Simulated assay, not measured.
Amino acid sequence: MERNLDASPKVPESVHPGRWWHAIEGERIQCDLCPRDCTLHAGQRGACFVRQNVDGRMVLTTYGRSSGFCIDPIEKKPLNHFFPGSSILSFGTAGCNLACKFCQNWDISKSKDMDRLLDAASPEGIAAAAVAYGAQSVAFTYNDPVIFAEYAIDTAVACGARNIRTVAVTAGYIHRQAAREFYAVMDAANVDLKSFSDDFYFKLCGGHLQPVLDILAYIHHETNCWLEITTLLIPGRNDSAAEIKALADWVARELGPEVPLHFTAFHPDWKMQDLPPTPPSTLTQARHIALDAGLHYVYTGNVHDSEGGTTFCPGCQAALIERDWYAIRHYDLPSNGCCPHCGTTIAGHFARFGKPFGPRRVPVRLVRP
């Protein structure tokens, strides 16, 4: 059931001064936010469509405007080691700085229609809404928050002032300088590692692999932001045993065994509707490959798979959190995050567990007075 909430204070204008750019010549500028390095003439928008050269300066055209707000379970992001069972206020804007032909949210991320941005709210209004709805966190999701980084950062700061956590669901396609400021205010991130092949990134996403690997290492080793990784397995494109092993080996070697890795199922969408959905057996095989590579927490997603959704203790293999999709069926982990059976510390952030939010999705509207 959709609910309404007054999202005062006053909502800012949608056109907002942008950061991370420099002038080239005349009124031309270069965007320094992400590895695309778009050069823009006066009036021109970047590949993301939402960052624009206006009178020789960068502006963000979607500040304070959203494609919609919803209360979700934290497990939907997906985050399995960041306050399991809690609720999160989720929103996005429009546009994207990658061009994935398999995008599962293409109606938002590929939109060039600013009229789709129906909901408006200031950063302070979003923080207030999270408090009012009892959401412990706010998620920047649906499209990549990198492209609305100014809005996301301001919202994260407003949320932090109210003890509301913030989560970035992102492809991690961002330059280091902007990443420093972005991840400094994020409490957790799920980064979409789309493939372990640069050819895949170039042909199917319009990007490159190495910048994403660099940002994954940066987040894990140089910030306090909790990190989990998701790879959408697409039949015949990035689901070979050899590629999955290479990906898992890299995570184990460069990040360590305690970073959770999610393998999720593809369904035909956007420009790749000629492929079949990912068979559950592919996800199961990928999970076993990653576990054999030494990773402690490997999950399957977008399928009903009790074993693939369960958090097992890496010390004694006890089933500590049993999940079915986004629903928690059993929880046996104290708030200190230590296995009650053998004392092994489970990586992540945990709190006293009460009644879980559950798998439901609750759309909400944030409206001006």
Rank of each mutant, 00 (worst) to 15 (best):
Y173N: 06
F357D: 12
G343H: 01
P84K: 04
T278C: 04
E243W: 05
S240Q: 10
F353D: 04
R3P: 06
L117P: 08
D187P: 12
R176H: 15
P356R: 00
P363V: 04
A156W: 05
L366D: 07
A161M: 06
D37P: 11
Y151L: 15
H208M: 03
R253G: 11
A135T: 09
C48T: 06
D55I: 00
H267A: 14
F202A: 15
T230Y: 05
R116N: 13
C31R: 01
W20D: 02
V138M: 07
K194S: 04
W106K: 07
T231K: 02
H330D: 15
N97A: 04
G358P: 14
V15N: 01
E243H: 03
A121Y: 09
V364Y: 00
T230H: 07
V59G: 00
D187E: 11
L193M: 04
H175E: 15
V191N: 00
H41L: 05
P257K: 05
H175Y: 12
E307A: 10
I328Y: 02
T166G: 12
M186F: 09
W21A: 01
A99R: 15
K355R: 15
P268L: 02
A121P: 08
E150S: 06
T278F: 05
I126M: 10
H330I: 10
N302L: 06
T231H: 04
M1F: 13
A318N: 01
Y326R: 13
A135P: 10
E258T: 13
V15A: 00
A189H: 07
A161L: 04
W325G: 11
G46V: 00
